[in-house]
Amino acid sequence: MVMLKSLSSSMNAKISGTGTGDEVIVLAHGYGGEQSFWEKIVPCLEEKHQVLLFDWNFSGACSDKLQDNGHTFDPIKYGSLDAFADDLVTLMDEMNIKSCVFVGHSMSGMIGCIASIKRPQLFNKLILIGASPRYINSEDYEGGFEASDIEQLLSTIESNYQPWATAFAPIAVGGKDSLLAEKFERSLKKMKPEIALAVAKIIFLGDYRHVLDKVETPCTIISTTNDVVVPSSVPYYMQKNMINSKSKVEIIDVDGHFPHLTAHNEVLNVISKVIDS
């Protein structure tokens, strides 16, 4: 019988910082990312708090280690965001975290919401950056894309992943900092194309709107003024449909889907305000 190594080891999880309280700040990256995407905000957070960083198993930052440890990405197991939420809860248990402020970027926003429903006592506050419960438009909802747009997107990822990553990165990051776009491009290209496609299907074909009214944890939704991935109406839709009246929306005046890279001081201000409230 082969014993699996810990999930935390496979996911490159580590806790840093000088905080002494029970509450930990958990930072979860999104699609195509890795934990280094938080590098601009971690030093400031570490001054007062303990911070948990990790890489999701689809990230190119831990694919080889997953193979060695027996925690490879299985498209059948990971057919929805629920499996990632289970991993998040397991990871926090392994790291002996009893309570956290969870900060989730993009797909991790909804993963955090689902995990908070499974284990509400673990999550004191949720901060969602560029999150969306649904990307496809319908009669009563603006997700940002028509079904045909998503079909074309997935087809391109499947047939021309590397060129797609090169084209998508600067559009998604926004702004004029080519180094940040190149950082996202490199991270995207570290993902195995078949895994990138499988995770893209989970994200862009999924519908998690039904989750919103089950989220009882106070939630702050951070959006930018011009995000090509998530329309400006989505954070307000999420706020309206969340059961907790304490949920709020914070708009940061910057382009793109990665404000923690392109406007990190503004993101830090929001996180600090949430923690202190």
Score class of each variant (00 low, 15 high):
N12F: 14
A165G: 08
I203V: 14
G143A: 05
V24D: 08
Q121W: 11
P193A: 14
D64G: 11
V101E: 03
P163I: 09
V254P: 06
V254A: 11
N265M: 13
M238F: 09
K189M: 13
M3H: 09
L154I: 04
G30N: 01
L81M: 13
N137T: 07
I251D: 04
W164K: 00
N12E: 04
A115K: 01
D82G: 12
G33E: 02
S8A: 14
G112N: 07
V89S: 10
T166K: 12
M3I: 12
N244I: 04
R134M: 14
F123I: 00
G60W: 02
W164Y: 13
I41N: 01
L4F: 09
N241L: 09
F102D: 00
L179R: 07
F145P: 00
S108W: 00
V234Y: 03
V230F: 13
E216R: 09
L4M: 12
V229R: 02
Y208L: 07
E151I: 03
I127E: 04
N124W: 11
E47T: 11
Y135A: 05
F73T: 00
M242W: 05
V24T: 03
H264T: 03
V103M: 05
S132I: 01
D87H: 05
K248S: 15
I15E: 02
V215H: 02
D227S: 10
V267D: 04
G256S: 07
N244D: 12
L268F: 14
S59Q: 07
V42R: 02
C100V: 00
Y78E: 06
I203P: 11
L154W: 08
Y208D: 12
A13K: 01
I275M: 13
P235F: 06
D207G: 13
N96A: 15
H49P: 03
A181T: 01
R209C: 15
D255Y: 12
E46N: 06
K118F: 13
I111Q: 05
M95P: 03
S6M: 07
Y161D: 01
I97F: 07
L154D: 06
V42H: 04
S187I: 07
V103F: 15
R134C: 15
V89H: 03
D93G: 12
S159W: 13
F204K: 00
E47L: 09
G144A: 04
N96Q: 15
L154A: 09
S108N: 02
N226K: 12
A85T: 02
A169S: 15
K77R: 15
G256C: 09
I221K: 04
F184S: 13
V173D: 12
A196G: 14
S187W: 04
G174R: 00
I114K: 03
V89E: 04
A61W: 02
K240C: 09
A147F: 14
I111D: 08
K48V: 02
Y161K: 00
M95W: 11
D55C: 05
F58G: 02
S63T: 06
F204L: 08
T156K: 13
D82V: 11
I41Y: 06
G109P: 10
A85S: 15
Y236Q: 06
S16W: 10
T90M: 13
L53E: 01
V234A: 05
I127T: 00
A13N: 04
I252K: 01
K192I: 10
P193S: 13
T217D: 10
F37A: 05
T90Y: 08
